[in-house]
Nucleic acid binder design. Structure first.
Length: 586
RNA sequence: CGGGGUGUGGCGCAGUCCGGUAGCGCACCUGCUUUGGGAGCAGGAAGUCGUAGGUUCAAAUCCUGCCACCCCGACCA
């Protein structure tokens, strides 16, 4: 393609509302245009990249035996009520909803489990039709609380979503594993190194899930990695090994209640009782778990030097969301002011869960639901009922990892893919069944698998950009090579540029000929900003020495040579670059 | 939703405190010159100053309501 016909529009300034590098550069390069908050138009150049991302995904999924479909994104609330997800998504406010002229309610798809399960339920009758894996690449909608970071977090985006249908858990394991390895290949083929991490399934639900992360400082997820062991997990889910409380194994002393005027936090208590470490204290955090129909009060006990993981806690309570109690609610339900709650003398209004870090603690210090007092030398089981123990603790960097006890390292990442084992979570309530080999109807055992297509493109920019602009990996670049003619008024130059352009086109290279009437500086800057992996410059050195110059965007490396020589070297480099990254074991 | 901030040609901004009828840079159009790192000169087009109301002889500027957008927290591919 010729640049004069490619609708290239670039800007000198970053948009005022851009924070992260991918947003700034994609806007400056004219790849994206903000229509309103969280809604972007993709330019022709952007769309070329996105189509390449899509095609890599298609090829790998087709290879893995999945079938592409296209499902409606306007979906009846009736269907969502059958799976039970309507309430959850209304509660969290993530789904856009609307109604038709007859007042029937619809949602705009944030994912498509209901629709695809409905389809499979009606079109699959026998176990002989399984396994089945259906996928689509389509628009998804989420009413994000705060859209930001350009294409990284938006209200409307392109997602690849796949759904597997199997006869059993064992068969699901096979389908899941196929997708997992396909995911590594997909990202490697794009030239991106994705990290698979254990994750929380969130609103989608199900038994197992794994996220695929691209490392980036601006990522919104924290990942803990135990180096050399293959253990990596989102902090929402991550586990670590915790040393026992120093009090473990001590003889129990008698309970005492002491005055602690206006001493509320662990830090303040440490100041007040300098001889008692935080690891001998138990904090009691009061929350409510919000369910569709009710709210349940919970008291959460955790060792004083530890913090609660809200996601783990939410999963334990089975609620849709966790909210901290307000000062007024605390007083009303415990009879004491904020800062003095504890398991000792706690009202029956609360369900109690204690983190594993509390198990085995003796002579601990905690609140006793009396303002300006704390209990010391408390013994669980004697001074309060032995609670249910569960892991609700936030693992932190530096703590020993769960596999071999090596210190956990913290990384930030952008979530670009997420795979889930759903089991029968959707098929069972929706009555989506097939006839098994025993002649009886049974629900599908499902998995679902997402990739944020538009987010992948933005993440790639985020990961590779430099101070000059975007640096596309070859497999997803809008053009693999730009041929820059520095002076379009000189016939020898334009003729040479044409020749190079035709030669590369004939070799099957995606090449852009920059034939615009602009100054040489502006063209070179544009090529760098737009991020084409390779550039061939036709200018002075051709006029004077019959030499073309080639440049590699990523390394900044340049080389010169005769026309054929340069064309051949570029073809080789591009063809090598198309393969993406070397597979890394899995 | 809570806290903070901003709305002025397509983009980036000044002008607002102290009221007097709108300006700069980039981009755009025409012509000439220029061509190895975002060219020069000359000419031109483009804004009811987010919006509604109020104060005033006079409002981008002061007052009130509303809207949009952005930043910090909770959501996710």
């Amino acid at each position: 393609m010729r640049a004069t016909g490619a609708h290239i529009v670039t800007y000198r300034d970053d948009p005022a509302d851009a924070e992260v590098i991918s947003h700034k550069l994609m806007a400056r390069a004219g790849y994206i245009y903000k229509v309103s908050a969280g809604l972007y138009a993709y330019s022709p150049m952007m769309w070329r990249s996105i189509k390449k991302v899509q095609n890599i995904i298609r090829e790998e999924l087709d290879d893995a035996g999945a079938l592409e479909v296209q499902l409606p994104i306007l979906q009846s609330s009736e269907l969502w009520k059958k799976s039970g997800r309507w309430d959850a998504y209304q509660a969290s406010g993530t789904m856009f909803s609307t109604s038709d002229r007859k007042d029937a309610t619809y949602g705009l798809a944030p994912t498509a489990e209901e629709v695809v399960t409905d389809y499979a339920g009606s079109s699959v009758n026998s176990y002989k039709q399984l396994p089945l894996n259906l996928y689509q690449i389509h628009t998804k909608f989420r009413d994000e609380i705060r859209p930001r970071f350009g294409l990284l977090r938006v209200k409307e985006f392109l997602m690849k979503d796949a759904y597997s249908f199997d006869v059993s858990e064992e068969a699901l394991d096979v389908s899941y594993e196929k997708m997992r390895s396909a995911y590594y290949r997909i990202f490697e083929r794009m030239g991106l190194r994705a990290l698979g991490v254990d994750a929380d399934p969130g609103d989608i639900g199900g038994s197992g899930s794994m996220e695929f992360m691209l490392a980036a400082e601006t990522g919104e997820d924290d990942i803990l990695v135990e180096p050399g062991t293959g253990y990596a997990a989102n902090t929402e889910k991550a586990e670590s090994v915790l040393a026992a409380s120093p009090s473990a194994g001590e003889d129990a002393r008698a309970l005492r209640i002491e005055d602690t005027p206006n001493i509320r936090t662990v830090a303040e208590l440490q100041g007040f009782f300098p001889e008692i470490e935080a690891s001998r204290m138990v904090k009691t955090v009061l929350v409510k778990a919000v369910h569709a129909e009710e709210e349940v009060l919970w008291a959460v006990l955790i060792r004083g030097d530890q913090e609660i993981n809200e996601v783990k806690l939410r999963n334990h309570t089975g609620g849709l969301a966790i909210q901290m109690l307000t000062a007024a609610e605390i007083e009303e339900n415990t009879g004491a002011k904020q800062g003095f709650a504890g398991p000792v003398g706690l009202s029956d209004a609360f369900s109690v869960v204690a983190d594993l870090s509390v198990e085995g603690m003796v002579n601990l210090l905690c609140g006793c639901n009396e303002t300006d007092k704390h209990a010391l030398d408390v013994l669980p089981g004697r001074d309060f009922a032995v609670p249910t123990y569960a892991d609700v603790r936030l693992a932190r960097a530096g703590e020993p990892g769960p596999r071999e006890g090596k210190p956990l390292e913290l990384y930030r990442g952008i979530e670009v893919g997420h795979i889930f084992k759903l089991g029968t979570k959707y098929a069972a309530p929706m009555g989506a069944t097939f006839i098994g080999d025993n002649g009886k109807p049974q629900p599908f055992v499902m998995g679902c698998y997402g990739i944020g297509v538009s987010r992948v493109a933005a993440s790639a920019v985020e990961q590779f950009a430099d101070d000059k602009g975007i640096v596309w990996p070859v497999p997803i670049a809008p053009f693999e090579v730009v041929v820059t003619c520095l002076n379009v008024k000189k016939a020898p130059l334009t003729e040479t540029a044409e020749k190079v352009y035709e030669a590369l086109k004939a070799a099957g290279i995606d090449v852009l000929l920059d034939d615009r009437k602009m100054g040489p500086g502006a063209k070179l800057k544009d090529a760098e900003l737009l991020g084409f992996p390779y550039a061939i410059v036709v200018g002075r050195s051709w006029e004077k020495e019959g030499q073309l110059e080639a440049r590699e965007r990523a390394s900044g490396e340049g080389w010169a040579g005769g026309l054929d020589e340069i064309v051949q070297s570029i073809i080789h480099k591009v063809e090598a670059g198309r393969a993406g990254l070397e597979p890394e074991g899995r």
